[in-house]
Structures are given as structure tokens and as C-alpha cells.
């Protein structure tokens, strides 16, 4: 049995497998299938200062090898997370990543500050949600505002800070460098790619929000490319995500430069995807004589 442990910004994970924010709620549902303690960590549902109702339905559309969603950060708000979800998660023997989002810099800083002194292991600042009108991707598509919000949240929290980046930009390395300079301890990428489907019978978009975020295996090669580009541009650790569905995908993402990974949409096809991926990583390491999985990060040999 090889060692699957990885470390990101000083936080040790028992393995690099983390369900992605928005795909896993706060763990209560998937715990009906398997214990949460098998996971490296959990990135919880994007949490805002106040309760959010989210966007009108339909909020999902299937695509070739993937899906669009336009949930719009529906969540119960920070107090509910801290008082109801976090105490439960803290008993599960896995790392807790608090994914936070806000409409203003002040709101994000306030949210991050609320995580101080709690069981949260790491704060993931979402500056890339494509489904909300204010905040979200508005911060993450410009290096100046991305740096500004990162600096404010960095000041407000004593937890390791990871900033989740949007792929809906011309050059993701510019944003990554900006948040690194502003004090981010890690970056996670990619959030979903903005997409659209139309029902040709009605002439209407399938999503009531008209557009939504594309995820699933369809986006995987884009995610690998962006992780590799960012790996070559910054010195802070990267958590890679976007379309991962198998252990081989995890290896590929790690070779591109990720220290750990997040997995979301794959769960909807197969609720046991995370269990199978962890088993697959052990098999891969055994078959290839890898003692420490962490050693493969960034080992791609580019032509």
C-alpha cells in the first residue's frame, strides 16, 4: 500500500481526493453511500453571508460528456453552516474546506473572518461562480479586482486561503499571479465554463438562467491545460479540478501540476466515483512502484 498523503498550503490530506463545492452539499447525502472519512477533504457548498434562494429552474441541462448548471449559490447562509453543518462535518475525520462567496469585498472578508477559530481547515474563496449577477466571476475575471478581494480576505482570515479561479478569461495565469501576489496560499481551478443549450422545439434556452456552468469530462482537457499553465506561472500549490472521473484522470491532473484534486459532476453518473478513484490510485501506485503519490505532482515532461 502506497502513501496517498498530500499537503496543500500546510494542510495535510490523507489522499488528494476532495469532492468539489456544489456537488456534495455538506456531505450528508453521500454519507448514505460511504463514510466521509475515506475522503482527503470536502469542499462544502458555496456559502454566502446570508441565505440565498438560487436561480429559478430548470437549473440543469445535459451536454455531451457533461452538464450545465445554473444553481446560483443556493445555500442556507454562514450562520447555518457554522451552527448546523460544521459541527457535524467536524466529526467525520476529513479536512473541511469552507467555500465562500460574496457580492462585495467586505462581505467576503466578513465571511472569511467568521471561519476563524472554527473547525474549518482551509478557506476557498470563490471568485468564479458564473451563475450569480453580483460578485462571483465579476471579481475573478480581472487581475486587479481578484488581487483586491484576495488581499482583503487574506487579512481577515487566519486559515490557509485558497482562491478558486474562473476559466472564463483570456489568460488564467495573469489572475493566478495576481492572487499569489495578494497573499493567496493556494489556487484551485477550474470553475465551470460558461455555456448554453437551446431546446430547438421551443426556441428557448433549457436553463431558465439562459446560460450556466459547464462541467464533466467534456472540460477535462481544458482543465489540465490551465493547471499546467498555472503550475508554470506561480509557486503556490494548485488544487486541480474540471471533469475528473477516474483515477487515471487524477494522475494526469497531478502530473500537470496539481497537488490535490476536486471532483464534482462525476458523482452524478456514479455516486461511488470517489471510492473507485481512491482504490484506483492505490492500484496505480502499486503497479508503478510509486511510494508517495505526492511525488508525481508536476512531473509531466513537456515536449
Amino acid at each position: 500500500m502506497s502513501n496517498l498523503k498530500v499537503s496543500v498550503a500546510g494542510v495535510e490530506f490523507k489522499n488528494p481526493i476532495i469532492p468539489a463545492s456544489g456537488a456534495f452539499g455538506y456531505g450528508r447525502e453521500y454519507e448514505q453511500f460511504y463514510p466521509l472519512s475515506i475522503l482527503g477533504g470536502i469542499s462544502v457548498k458555496g456559502t454566502t453571508l446570508h441565505r440565498r434562494e438560487g436561480n429559478p429552474p430548470p437549473r440543469v441541462a445535459e451536454t455531451p460528456s457533461g452538464m450545465l448548471n445554473s444553481v446560483g449559490l443556493q445555500n442556507g447562509g454562514a450562520e447555518k453552516f457554522l451552527n448546523y453543518e460544521l459541527p457535524n462535518l467536524a466529526t467525520k475525520d476529513t479536512r473541511i474546506i469552507a467555500n465562500i462567496a460574496g457580492a462585495t469585498v467586505e462581505e467576503c472578508a466578513q465571511l472569511a473572518g467568521m471561519m476563524n477559530g472554527t473547525a474549518v481547515d482551509m478557506v476557498e474563496l470563490n471568485i468564479s461562480c458564473p451563475n450569480v449577477k453580483h460578485g462571483g466571476a465579476a471579481f475573478g475575471t480581472n487581475p486587479v479586482t481578484a488581487a483586491e478581494i484576495t488581499a482583503a480576505v487574506r487579512k481577515a482570515t487566519d486559515k490557509p486561503l485558497m482562491v478558486k479561479l474562473s476559466p472564463n478569461v483570456t489568460d488564467i495565469t495573469e489572475i493566478a499571479k495576481a492572487v499569489e501576489a495578494a497573499g493567496a496560499d493556494a489556487v484551485s481551478l477550474i470553475n465551470t465554463l460558461l455555456g448554453m443549450r437551446i431546446d430547438i422545439k421551443t426556441g428557448r434556452p433549457i436553463l431558465k438562467n439562459n446560460v450556466g456552468g459547464l462541467s464533466g469530462p467534456a472540460v477535462f482537457p481544458i482543465a489540465v491545460r490551465m493547471v499546467w499553465q498555472v503550475y508554470n506561472a506561480v509557486n503556490i500549490p494548485i488544487v486541480g479540478m474540471g471533469g475528473i472521473a477516474t483515477a487515471e484522470d487524477v494522475i494526469e491532473m497531478m502530473m500537470a501540476g496539481a497537488k490535490a484534486v476536486q471532483i464534482g459532476a462525476a458523482l452524478f453518473s456514479d455516486p461511488f466515483a470517489l471510492v473507485k478513484i481512491i482504490e484506483g490510485l492505490n492500484e496505480y501506485c502499486d503497479a508503478n512502484g510509486i511510494k508517495n503519490l505526492a511525488d508525481i505532482t508536476g512531473t509531466v515532461k513537456p515536449w
Binding site: G25, E29, P57, R59, N69, V71, P271
Partner: peptide
């Protein structure tokens, strides 16, 4: 009925 994702209550897409 609503278009659904996970089916178990985690992804929140099947809103009504």
C-alpha cells in the same frame, strides 16, 4: 417532476 442531477439532494438543481 424536474430536470435532475445527483438525485439525492446534494447538487440542488431540481428546484421547485
Amino acid at each position: 417532476e424536474q430536470r435532475m442531477g445527483c438525485g439525492v439532494g446534494a447538487c440542488l438543481v431540481c428546484a421547485c
